[in-house]
Amino acid sequence: MSTIATTNLLEVDELTVHYGKFQALKGVSVTLAPGETLGLVGESGSGKSTLGRAVLGLAEVSSGSIRYLGREISRLDRAGRRALSREIQVVFQDPYTSLNAMLSVGDILVEPLLVQGTNGAKARERVQELLDQVRLPSDAATRLPREFSGGQRQRIAIARALAINPQLIVCDEPVSALDLSTQARVIDLFIEIQERTGVAYLFISHDLAVVRAISHRVAVMSGGKIVEQGPADQVTSAPKDDYTRRLLMAAPVPDPIAQAERRRARLAQAGKVPA
């Protein structure tokens, strides 16, 4: 992918998050530049979604800091967090539950615009622009979310996140609920939008192949820690950490013989005897 700016948009430094006695994040540090995609990858329970939630203000920070354009945002009050929503938005995993089923697509997209003070006529004009951006027909504004496929619903969620021109979108497993062909089209859409708008993504996934397709840099998480991070090509083709190697070998490939070899190598590395 093309190079990005070097000034940091987001800086997470020695971040720790507890859920009761459980330590979900253990001194995590990452940075994100404007227009960049940082892929966070790891298995379930690795801490990647907790990091995303902390950036969004949905997980209470125990220690460490989160700075957005140099400003500490980890302990904002409700008013401060609402103001920051102009700059930081989110696309959640499940397009079936993240949209209000009772509202039309137009109402879903116009709501954040009206909250931020956009007048009615300009808001409706912006809705049409958003539908064009995510490649949905203009009459989609009058329809309900249930009338669309999973991939189309995720496009609606992306349009909602883009509505007020954020600088950063936290993408929490945004394609994991979609089939492979739909995943590829939505990933292409994310890349196209980034190239056009300059938005940055904190892209969270358990799938190393998905992260490789979209990210400039990759941070691999396990047990609440960053175990490896670096340029996407380097981390996904020549990983240095054993855990990253296992993730890479777990990624499916079209060739069944190669897939079987990967499985045998993964089991051998984990100390198990393959069948």
Results as ranks from 00 to 15, higher is better:
Thr3Arg: 14
Thr6Cys: 10
Leu9Ile: 06
Asp13Val: 11
His18Thr: 07
Lys21Ser: 15
Ala24Arg: 05
Gly39Met: 08
Leu40Ser: 02
Glu43Pro: 04
Gly47Cys: 03
Ser49Glu: 03
Arg53Tyr: 13
Ala54Gln: 01
Val55Phe: 03
Val55Met: 04
Gly57Asn: 01
Leu58Gln: 09
Tyr68His: 11
Tyr68Leu: 12
Arg71Glu: 15
Arg71Ile: 09
Ile73Glu: 05
Ser74Met: 09
Arg81Tyr: 10
Ser85Gln: 15
Glu87Gln: 14
Gln89Gly: 06
Phe92Asn: 09
Asp94Met: 07
Ser98Glu: 10
Glu111Leu: 10
Pro112Thr: 10
Val115Phe: 14
Asp132Ser: 14
Gln133Gly: 05
Ala140Ile: 01
Arg146Ala: 13
Ser149Ile: 00
Arg155His: 03
Ala159Gly: 08
Ala159Leu: 07
Leu162Phe: 09
Ala163Pro: 07
Ile164Tyr: 06
Ile169Lys: 01
Cys171Gln: 07
Val175Ser: 01
Leu178Glu: 07
Ile187Leu: 13
Asp188Gln: 12
Glu192His: 10
Thr197Phe: 05
Ile204Met: 04
Asp207Arg: 07
Val211Thr: 06
Arg212His: 12
Ile214Lys: 00
His216Val: 03
Arg217His: 12
Val218Cys: 10
Val218Met: 03
Ala219Leu: 00
Gly224Ile: 04
Gly224Ala: 06
Ile226Asn: 00
Pro252Val: 11
Pro254Ile: 08
Asp255Leu: 08
Ile257Cys: 03
Arg263Thr: 14
Arg264His: 07
Arg264Pro: 04
Leu267Pro: 05
Gln269Asp: 14
Gly271Gln: 04
Ala275Tyr: 12
